[in-house]
């Protein structure tokens, strides 16, 4: 129940000089974990990516996961069933039919879950917060996460990057998932790459197929880079 972004000195020391995109960023607090949000539409593969990141990082990073799936324990169970993380490292947050509210407008239940994990476990380096499946306008509050990954997939149609929305345009990393299905759904990856770059400028985009790359090497590398930054 402590406020976690109230230290003006920390805020000052870490605040970004660039206006706009980085305005209002949550400052890292020494001794507290990095928080990365994973959002995106229903079925785009958020939970599978979280599981892959847990497997890839398990030996090197002390991590925990908060899930916001509307079916409460479903995603948590998936992580537990796959032996990715022990029970005590996964918290499920109920969102009262409004998954976007819980990660953006009223982040209290998620902050509570993060603090609960921090209190009940040895020191953590990383907390992954997975949103419930929502629509293209759902993004994480800068009060909840330090960075956010937006996950879309080719079977949603190759027009999705062109449609934009804050997840596509301003997330710190855009993941275009299930590239192994592109041929079957007539999705043109080149079109998706071009549209994504058009919407995102120099913000990174990564293609992913967990069938071909179960360790999600590129995404894991991006997370490692964020962990290596100051904090």
């Amino acid at each position: 129940m402590r406020p976690d972004h109230d230290d003006p000195e920390t805020q000052q020391a870490h605040s970004h000089p660039l206006p706009g995109r980085n305005a209002g960023r949550l400052a890292r607090i020494p001794g507290r974990p990095l928080r990365i949000g994973l959002g995106g539409p229903v079925g785009s593969g958020k939970t599978a990516l979280v599981a892959a990141l847990c497997r890839s990082l398990a030996g090197e990073v002390r991590l925990a996961v908060v899930t916001n799936d509307i079916y409460t324990t479903e995603d948590a169970d998936f992580l537990l069933r796959n032996g990715v993380l022990p029970t005590e490292r996964v918290r499920a947050v109920e969102t009262g039919c409004c998954p976007h509210t819980a990660i953006r407008d009223d982040i209290s239940a998620n902050l509570e879950a993060v603090e609960d994990l921090e209190h009940s476990l040895p020191p953590l380096d990383l907390v992954l917060i997975e949103s419930g499946g929502d629509n293209l306008t759902a993004t994480f509050s800068h009060g909840l996460v330090h960075h956010q990954i937006f996950v879309i997939d080719v079977s949603g149609g190759d027009k999705v990057p062109r449609k934009g929305g804050p997840g596509v345009t301003s997330s710190d990393l855009l993941v275009i998932n299930k590239t192994d299905l592109a041929g079957q759904v007539n999705a043109d990856l080149a079109v998706m790459a071009r549209d994504a770059e058009d919407k995102r400028g120099d913000l990174p985009v990564r293609f992913l197929s967990l069938v071909e790359d179960p360790q999600a090497h590129d995404i894991t590398a991006w997370v490692r880079e964020r962990l290596g930054e100051d904090g």
């Binding site: 947050v93 109920e94 969102t95 009262g96 409004c98 509210t101 819980a102 407008d105 009223d106 982040i107 209290s108 239940a109 509570e112």
Partner: peptide, 11 residues
């Protein structure tokens, strides 16, 4: 109801 204290998730 928009006050951000988590009430929206309770029925």
């Amino acid at each position: 109801g928009r006050f951000p204290a988590g009430g929206h998730a309770h029925s």
